[in-house]
Amino acid sequence: MSGRKSADLGGMAEGLRAAVHDYVKHVNQAEIELKADGLTGIVSDCDYLARTGRRLSRLEERDRLRGAYPERHESRARLLHIGATERDGEVPVRLELHFKRTLAQRGAGYAEERLETERLWLAEANGRWQIARIEPEIAERRSGASGDPETEDVPQENGRFQPPQAVKSVSVPYLNDDLLPYFNQHRPSIPYRRDLAAAYADRWWQQPNPAYENMQVNCTNYVSQCLFAGHAPMNYTGKRASGWWYKGRSGGQELWSYSWAVADALQRYLSAARAGGLRATPVDAPWQLKLGDVICYDWEGDGRYGHNTIVTAFDREGMPLVNANTVSSRHRYWDYRDSYAWTPRTRYRFFHIADLF
């Protein structure tokens, strides 16, 4: 009996894997053609198909206006987990997708990459597994997520706030010993090493640096690390609601400022005028940015910024390409119209980081 059950489970897993493999193949084709039509035969989730169709349509229009033409698209997948069968007979599957898109523009090419994690629910019908529902597990914006630190307001110093939760802890707080003499001194003699900030962003875009906490919503923590790698000096106040600083975790206590790890808090910090330390100048347009500068994203146009990226390269038109975390991205076009988080109400803030601190 147990042998028959094991055989049944093995057959189910094989069928699930085959269905996921077919899904990935069709997703790759959809990304090449920039049309979701080919997915209708294997995915019955109408909301997903509509979202994907809108996203690919935006991407096609944007590429055309930029004069950028896709030359190649690669999709790799890693099956992370097959869950237990749920009451309705659906089986949840966690899937990591690695997209790499190569574009040609004015005689030159570049590649953009992103990592996405999805949760799929598969149902068996007529002896064949089909995909009933698809949801991104983590996106640039997690709609309706209660307590999501990237979309919550940051309090005043005496307020209450649920800080970003770390995925894992490191035993020793991380500090750059070479820069310790500069903390809180704000001497205007530290050059911002834009090249080092961009190099760090490219080194750690798809895996967390173990010297830091890796947070569930990691985009701002990642951008802050990049700025620090470029020698932006911390303003260590020891208070969560002030300064821009990070020490790690000690005895279960989270030792970093909101501005280090929360999207809207970093946007506010960069917006404020100050005489020294990490500071920035808002500029009007993306083409005014340089390597190592920062873009903040307000998806709903309501003044709350829920995502941050750092400029790591430029296309042939001089427009910025950015790196990010949460949805790990490398050399992605700055406007994020290819993201499910984007809406017609999306607003941006462009920050030119000071050349000297």
Score class of each variant (00 low, 15 high):
E74A: 11
R62V: 01
P344F: 08
D47M: 09
A272P: 00
V294D: 04
A265Q: 00
L270W: 04
H98N: 13
W121C: 15
S339M: 04
P181C: 07
I134C: 11
A30W: 07
S242P: 01
R66Q: 08
Y246S: 05
H186S: 14
L9M: 12
S257R: 03
P70N: 01
Y348R: 02
D22P: 05
A36F: 01
R4Y: 11
S224E: 02
L321D: 07
K168M: 10
R316W: 01
A7H: 13
S189Q: 14
R62N: 01
T85R: 14
R274Q: 09
N209R: 03
L175P: 00
A145R: 11
Q130I: 08
A7S: 13
R160Y: 07
R51N: 11
V170A: 07
A125E: 15
Q105G: 10
H307V: 08
E112I: 03
S250I: 15
Y222T: 03
A275Q: 11
W334S: 05
S171W: 10
R54Q: 13
L34Q: 12
C226V: 04
M234C: 08
R332E: 09
W256E: 00
R55G: 02
L321N: 06
D22N: 14
A265S: 12
S189R: 13
L65N: 08
G89T: 09
P208N: 05
Q206Y: 15
Y269N: 03
Y212D: 01
E150C: 09
D335I: 05
A198F: 05
P233F: 00
I131W: 08
N184Q: 09
H307Y: 13
V172H: 12
A341S: 15
G292P: 02
A145L: 13
D148H: 03
D148Q: 02
V327N: 07
Y222S: 05
P188R: 13
L255A: 02
V154M: 11
E157R: 15
K5G: 01
